[in-house]
Design a protein around this nucleic acid. Structure first.
Lengths: 200, 200
DNA sequence: TGTACATCAGTGAACGCGCGTTCACTGATGTAC
DNA sequence: TGTACATCAGTGAACGCGCGTTCACTGATGTAC
């Protein structure tokens, strides 16, 4: 509705400042890290006064929580979509795993914030909390279809560790480049890992 | 040699300011997170002027790199010690894995810094870089004793992901408390995870 | 269709703060003779 | 053992900066009549 341009607006109102600030925040984190993130810098990039973000976020933490929520929603959607056409439980689980790693690579800034313990778990809206629950429940559901009830938790924790660990190591630059060149390469690496994991 | 006391020194010289600052930094990170860390706050806690740390660290990044180096050295030592009496390759690998998770729990601040991509890989002394190489080579050595040469990398990545993921999830408070009550509980959880991992 | 008014989004000045880093200094320490 | 001196560790004032947050404001928008 209104221009999204980085620096100049013609209208007084922005149109979708909230979304623009979120976008800018991701950019800032990418360039300067979480430590370098500031509301003022986000405002600057969007071309808006430094107080404007306060119309949309109560404070800096609220911005971070919003990003985390966005991330969990996206992760959940991606997982759901990846499993959509699959019936076999193990295939569904592995599809979710691949989607998880893919998500981490596609949205590293979100991913890191989602799992940054720096944030008060108390903060964040109910909606955000629900989004994160949904993503985790999806994993448990996959496990439940695969192993006996009394082993679901253990299987979930184990599988999640595998997938989460790979994601983190990739984001931290600990995995040799040659495995990360393309989506297909990443999927191959991931599935090769899954091959070493047995459900029981 | 000199008092380590938090607030008051009798002597003009501190005695081991470098170590004291490192300790204080860990404390600050524990309380306020990486974002809340400042050299000035460390100096304050040690009871020293805010410029004093600059006698021991070129800048803030140097402090972080020193912590990371300390962490890698400790992780390496812990791994070595855990495997010391074991002969069987898989037992050695699992011992290293348990030590890894234990280390993450014992030194969460170090662990997070060691894997925080925020730092320039360029920074840090040669000694620090050697320490991190040593820790990783230990893992590769375990793999090499366990699987054929052409699978060593894949096995290492996979096992490392498992162990690293569990560590991260624990630090981020994503693992139910009942598994973390004691060293024994953590070891049980970890070994249960390893039981689902096959080397080939 | 036109007007009055309430509501909302963005402004810009101002606040107080803690930070990283530099610098000329001073007090303590240790070593050569 | 005693003294002179170089070296080193810690001091405290000062710099400039960007930040989070508040506030009274103004421009734009939409709605009721």
């Amino acid at each position: 509705m209104a221009p999204r341009g980085r620096k100049k607006r013609k209208t007084y109102h922005h149109g979708d400042l909230r979304a623009a600030i979120l976008e800018a925040a991701v950019e800032v984190i990418r360039e300067r890290g979480l430590v370098g993130l500031s509301l003022r810098e986000c405002a600057r990039r969007v071309g808006v006064s430094h107080a404007a973000p306060y119309r949309h976020f109560a404070d800096k933490d609220a911005l971070l929580m919003a990003l985390a929520g966005e991330g969990f929603r996206e992760l959940y959607e991606a997982g759901l979509e990846a499993m959509a056409d699959l019936k076999e439980p193990r295939a569904r689980l592995d599809a979710y795993g691949v989607a998880y790693v893919r998500f981490a690579i596609a949205r590293p800034e979100h991913f890191r914030i989602m799992f940054a313990s720096e944030l008060d778990a108390d903060a964040g809206t109910d909606e955000d909390r629900a989004a994160s629950d949904a993503a985790f429940n999806l994993l448990d559901a996959c496990s439940a279809a695969l192993v006996p009830a009394e082993e679901v938790e253990a299987a979930s924790v184990s599988y999640w560790s595998l997938v989460h660990g790979l994601s983190m190591l990739i984001l931290d630059g600990r995995i040799p480049e040659e495995h990360l060149g393309s989506d297909a390469a990443v999927e191959a690496l991931t599935r090769q890992m899954f091959a070493r994991w047995r459900e029981t």
